Simulated assay, not measured.
Amino acid sequence: MRNIKNILKSGFLALAIAAPIACEANTKKQEPTVLLAEAKSTKPSKQYVKIALLLDTSNSMDGLINQAKAQLWDIVNEFSYARCGNDSRPLLQIALYEYGNDNLSSREGYIRQVIGFISSDLDEISEKLFSLTTNGGEEYCGQVIHTSLRQLDWGKNKDDLKMIFIAGNEPFTQGKLDYKDAALQAKEKDVIVNTIFCGNYEQGISTHWKKGAQLTGGDYMAIDHNRQVVHIDTPYDDVIIQLNARLNNTYISYGHAGARKKAMQVAQDDNAVELEEAVAVKRAVSKSTGLYNNSSWDLVDASEDAEFDVSKLEKDELPEELKGKSSREIEKFIESKKVERARIQKEIQELNAKREAYMAKHQKEEAGELENAMITAIKAQAAKKNYSWK
């Protein structure tokens, strides 16, 4: 039997920005990604949505980065409504690249993979987004697309929805690698390239951003990346934030990474609050859904797997409140936290329904530029693979 410490090291997001959403190719019940007492020998086939977000982090892109930080949770929450043809959920994976920044290596084309495809660690995606800084540089669109196609595991399942979103404001033709060659590589991997020009719509067309999307059947969009998103405050926000604090107390950290991951959870709550209270509310809503899963370090999420075995846990890696406890006592403690979590998540969901109704009454749309562009493209392209939003 594998040592559970090794399994903890390999357990993961994730973002997919993913707490996975999972659309299985058959109608069997989805099996969550969890900490296992013993690894499974086989896994059921699942359908994935894989999104690589390529962000220009040159000097002029501060507004774009701020929109990405503010709207990550809107995009995640939107996916909580996604369904496959058999009414199950697709598994969301998000990768993040930055390009066009002088702080990056010129040998690598001023390109850096910030985080690869992951399945559930939304906190890590948030942490990486908040770590991004801008600095002037050369923006090589063709090269960053090529790099993401080469480095990421896109898989070979034709039923998966594979998408690149590249955002920037310099000509799409910069760099030694031709964007047309990158588009051909994308088509070979069944990856759709969507382009988001940060500026005037016609200027994006004249600098080949539209052509870059058309070559793979993707969408071309232009946004005002400096637009301030106007969030609507509601009477339910403060209560949801208070519930979020109680929700955090239901997480039981375990293993070498447990304490660090739990601290990251709180740090990303703080980042959201500092950005704007409404962003913290949206993050709390994400944490109340199945998209937010921490089975690699939290015993409650890990215990959802049928093969989870308390007796196999390494006692020296238990949190202080469980050290010296019997297996039965640990099981009872985990179960109590599970029940408490489910109750809090249900309260958040109920309050969010009221919050959304309040926002709909006071303003028809709150969505930001980046979020609008991405969700519009995702829904249109997902429909071709029998996805729906309910």
Results as ranks from 00 to 15, higher is better:
253 S>W: 13
236 Y>P: 01
251 Y>H: 15
231 H>S: 04
242 Q>K: 11
261 K>T: 03
247 L>H: 08
223 I>W: 05
249 N>F: 02
216 T>V: 02
217 G>D: 01
235 P>T: 08
256 H>R: 15
267 A>P: 00
247 L>Q: 07
256 H>Q: 15
225 H>A: 08
262 K>M: 11
242 Q>I: 07
248 N>K: 13
233 D>W: 02
258 G>V: 07
251 Y>A: 15
268 Q>I: 14
248 N>W: 09
228 Q>H: 08
266 V>N: 09
266 V>K: 07
213 A>S: 03
241 I>Q: 06
206 S>A: 10
244 N>F: 08
228 Q>Y: 07
271 N>E: 12
206 S>T: 13
246 R>Q: 11
262 K>P: 10
240 I>F: 03
266 V>R: 12
214 Q>L: 01
215 L>S: 03
209 W>P: 10
221 M>S: 14
264 M>K: 08
264 M>A: 05
231 H>A: 05
271 N>D: 14
239 V>H: 11
253 S>E: 15
234 T>V: 07
210 K>Y: 00
254 Y>V: 15
241 I>T: 10
216 T>M: 01
215 L>K: 12
209 W>E: 11
229 V>N: 02
255 G>P: 10
251 Y>M: 15
269 D>T: 06
211 K>S: 06
246 R>N: 08
270 D>K: 15
221 M>G: 02
250 T>R: 04
230 V>K: 12
267 A>R: 04
263 A>R: 13
246 R>G: 00
231 H>F: 14
237 D>Q: 11
220 Y>W: 11
252 I>T: 12
239 V>W: 04
209 W>I: 13
267 A>L: 06
264 M>N: 12
262 K>Y: 08
206 S>V: 13
269 D>E: 12
238 D>Q: 10
240 I>W: 03
227 R>N: 07
206 S>R: 13
236 Y>F: 11
229 V>K: 06
213 A>K: 00
257 A>I: 15
270 D>S: 14
237 D>G: 06
208 H>S: 06
222 A>V: 14
261 K>Y: 01
